[in-house]
Design a protein around this nucleic acid. Structure first.
Length: 260
DNA sequence: CACACTGTTCGCTC
DNA sequence: CGAGCGAACAGTGT
């Protein structure tokens, strides 16, 4: 589930719980979640403190008092959990840090698509992994530039983390619904005005979601999230929401509202 | 039971 | 080189 707004919430949570406390233990019960050997994590984390966080899209960079930066990606089912007692360890808390105050930080990851990594430079990592600026900070001119050489459905392009880092499957559907844009609109057929409309919707969806702490039921009533299921009624037209598959992802849209 | 779901990454074609 | 595409990954839920 975690897309940009959820990860933003995780960042705030970690900032308010885990910073400036010496790490006394590192426990990982499934090393598949580690992109470097476990020994490296022990070496660079034990005895250090987490000092700050920086988010780009769905990637959370955690700075430490040591020589490395910790990168967390929550995958599809990840979330942080800060707790006190050892026996409170969550079922899917596959990675756990313990701090000098005795509290623990669990990286919960039910489906194990999330991971941790150790890196030297955020800028370098961003370049190597073709990450765009965070969608929240992205400039219209950069968004248009990224779209200019693309020749496929706008929905697929929105999911590309080199275009607008942080947009995931539900956000892409919501952005296109707000923009009245059909998900299969070909990017090469879009005018600059179309792109600008989608861009503005993206900003609106991001800020609305963060404002409501990614709690979907609190979103405005004309948001797709309230009726994002096959056969549900579109807020504007009353027509049935349709489900198609794009880029291997379930895509929901209102055919009467988002006309191709 | 077979498949849906979620994001990234890999391998392949063009 | 890089866009596009589809499969693969893990495990729970339906």
């Amino acid at each position: 589930m975690p897309e940009l707004p959820e990860v933003q919430g995780y960042k705030v949570y970690i900032d308010s719980t885990c910073l400036h406390k010496t790490i006394t233990s590192f426990d990982c019960r499934d090393t598949k979640l580690l992109k470097e050997p476990k020994k490296e994590f022990e070496k660079y984390l034990l005895g250090t403190k987490l000092t700050g966080t920086y988010r780009i899209g769905k990637y959370l960079f955690v700075e430490t008092s040591g020589d490395k930066i910790l990168v967390m990606h929550f995958g599809m089912t990840g979330r942080p959990n800060y707790y006190k007692e050892v026996d409170e360890r969550p079922k899917y808390g596959h990675i756990v840090l313990t701090f000098e105050n005795g509290f623990h930080f669990a990286f919960e990851n039910k489906r194990k698509f999330g991971w941790w990594n150790l890196i030297d430079s955020i800028e370098e990592y961003k370049t190597e992994h073709n990450l765009s600026d965070d969608a929240r900070d992205l400039k219209l001119e950069d968004f248009i530039a990224s779209l200019s050489n693309r020749k496929t459905d706008i929905k697929k392009v929105l999911l590309d983390q080199s275009v607008a880092a942080g947009v995931g499957n539900w956000m892409a559907d919501e952005i296109l619904y707000q923009a009245k844009m059909h998900p299969q609109k070909k990017v090469q057929d879009m005018t600059e005005k179309d792109m600008s409309t989608v861009f503005d919707s993206m900003k609106k969806v991001i800020e609305t979601a963060i404002e409501h702490e990614a709690h979907y039921s609190d979103f405005p009533e004309d948001f797709l999230m309230h009726f994002r299921k096959e056969g549900a009624k579109c807020y504007h037209t009353g027509a049935e929401i349709q489900k198609i598959k794009l880029g291997g992802r379930a895509t929901y849209f209102s055919p009467k509202w988002q006309v191709l």
